[in-house]
Design a protein around this nucleic acid. Structure first.
Lengths: 196, 196
DNA sequence: GTGCAGTCGTAACAGGCGTTACGGTAACAT
DNA sequence: ATGTTACCGTAACGCCTGTTACGACTGCAC
């Protein structure tokens, strides 16, 4: 064997650099060179770790999904009640602080990129369907008496609302402050009979 | 004077070409050459009509806002009741047929591009705030007894939900068919006491 | 110590990008 | 008819892109 480095850690660092560039410079400036600069290396390392730019973006996308899935699962496990879990999981999808605003910008960037990359759109669909199933499970736990169809409809409504609010807030944080987003979520859960 | 052409019509045709490229090829392939090809001309005409690429994108963005505003106003005027108007206006924001799915893809593309263009984000904010005010007015007309705060909260909730659903449907039309989106909207209006 | 394999920076490549320059053409004013 | 002016295709410019090739370096095996 020759010199050993932590390849997975390098891939993760490069993926984080992808997120940074996407959040701070936008999709159009998401170049291999910009990612390398953000990661503090050169294109040599980037192209050594990934076969091409597409593979880099896909790995960054997968890692982002995995990261947010883990965060969501922790929230779900820590919640005291099913309704608390539902609210906590939905709340983390909002863009209510600099970090989550960044996350939403990155999310939109990846979505826009996915329309020009079959594999990226596939990753999006797979993870979005998992997200939707999770919401259905949470809604079912929060309102066990509901029929499956109502659960599904409400899960879609809540998921779409959170995602749309995050997009609005990412593009115009002053117009959509945290309090507005939180009240929107609380109020919608309440009228659906899912308030705590 | 010299030869006369309809400059506004040309700008509109080029803007439509921008939408087409954005919908069919994505933001990354939205080049001046691609727009020219889609419009059936050369880069010569594009650069003759617009000082640069940014101005082209901004014009296309403004025109898109104006077009959808006109469509919304027609729907509003044609509605029989305030609640019918609210529902019709929200409904047109969904992605429920090939045309509106295209529109949503374009919307996401412009939003992603706006994060790297100060003037594009300004255009987005201005129009998004107008959109939000329109929803507040429609909610006020549909529920005159509500306090201003509740009107505002519900307007944000409904607007965000529609935008999020359109984004989900654009990325995964099979998973979010028209019926699912419509039921989501109908159900949410109903629980908010805004059903017809 | 020597060989070797993985590491990754440097430099170059071809291709595509936005933009500019130029010139032939076409319609209007006179 | 002629001059003039806007039109817009063609071709080129320099820049930046993703990708490849190369080679110096590094640490392990023996």
């Amino acid at each position: 064997m020759s010199r050993t480095v932590d390849q997975a850690a390098q891939q993760e660092a490069l993926s984080r650099a992808v997120w940074d560039v996407l959040a701070q410079q936008g999709l159009e400036r998401l170049t291999v060179r910009a990612v390398a600069t953000a990661a503090g290396c050169t294109t040599g390392l980037v192209m050594h770790r990934f076969p091409n730019r597409q593979a880099l973006l896909r790995h960054a996308r997968e890692l982002l999904h995995e990261t947010s899935r883990r965060r969501v699962e922790a929230l779900e496990a820590a919640a005291a009640t099913p309704r608390g879990a539902l609210r906590a999981v939905l709340r983390q999808g909002l863009a209510i602080d600099p970090e989550s605003i960044n996350g939403s910008v990155v999310w939109i960037g990846f979505l826009a990129a996915a329309f020009a990359d079959d594999e990226l759109i596939e990753i999006h669909r797979r993870n979005n369907r998992l997200w939707r199933e999770r919401l259905e499970r949470l809604v079912a736990a929060a309102a066990p008496e509901w029929a499956a169809r109502r659960r599904a409809t409400v899960a879609v409504a809540l998921g779409a609302m959170v995602e749309g609010a995050a997009a609005f807030a990412a593009a115009d944080p002053d117009a959509y402050p945290a309090a507005v987003q939180e009240e929107m979520l609380t109020e919608t859960l309440r009228v659906y009979g899912l308030g705590e």
